[in-house]
Write a protein that binds this DNA or RNA. Sequence first.
DNA 1: CACACCTATGAACGCTCGTTCATACTTTCA
DNA 2: TGAAAGTATGAACGAGCGTTCATAGGTGTG
Lengths: 119, 119
Amino acid sequence: MGHGTDGMIPTVASEPAVDAVARTMHALATPSRVHLLLRLRTGPRTVGELVDDVGMEQSAVSHQLRVLRHLGLVVGDRDGRQIRYRLHDDHVAQLLDEAVFHVEHLTSGLTDTPGLTDA
Amino acid sequence: MGHGTDGMIPTVASEPAVDAVARTMHALATPSRVHLLLRLRTGPRTVGELVDDVGMEQSAVSHQLRVLRHLGLVVGDRDGRQIRYRLHDDHVAQLLDEAVFHVEHLTSGLTDTPGLTDA
DNA sequence: CACACCTATGAACGCTCGTTCATACTTTCA
DNA sequence: TGAAAGTATGAACGAGCGTTCATAGGTGTG
């Protein structure tokens, strides 16, 4: 059972929502950001720790963290001269888990030619 | 695709899964595809119908449908000289609903400056 | 105050990707 | 079989984006 639109089916789903979905899902459309988010899902980490975890440069990590910040997915708290990042709330963690879950359970029935179930 | 590591709790989430998530979520990272998917969520539609629904050219629709097909999110069944597309399964519909749900409930606590909860 | 440490920012480059234009393919009908 | 309808495909162009390089901003320490 899914939450969300229980019962009522979105006949067309408001147009504005379309852009909002695309914009937010954009955060999960890049390996580097997914990597960072999954890392933060295990708990708060400083930028330096994240740099060590994923194989990215400090600048790249900072840039991506800014993107995630603007999307409201992560929050940074200053601790001394370093900044500790964390997922914004459980909502984000849940979204992450579901993304991973769905991907791992996608019936891989890829199709190359339309009109056929497989080819 | 292979699940390299065991099927355990995502303490760190296997590296390969990261790319898989990013690749699939990529489908939801563009307004045009979200539009098409949400439309298909209300039931099967032919390409022509989709063209009328969303404000895209036939070619663009066909191109995006191909992307969604390769990702295993939609399936096309030939019906006469037109092809009727539909979501691959309930899984995809659920993923869509959850995406919309989460976006609509994202505590919009955007932050521009790190180290501060708001500014 | 000067310096090292940590993180953020801006510019630039390369690449990916979505769209458009033109065309080919498949199916139906006369 | 020739034509029209419906859809797919390839090339090309432009925009958006992720990375790197260089540098600035802020923080603690001696």
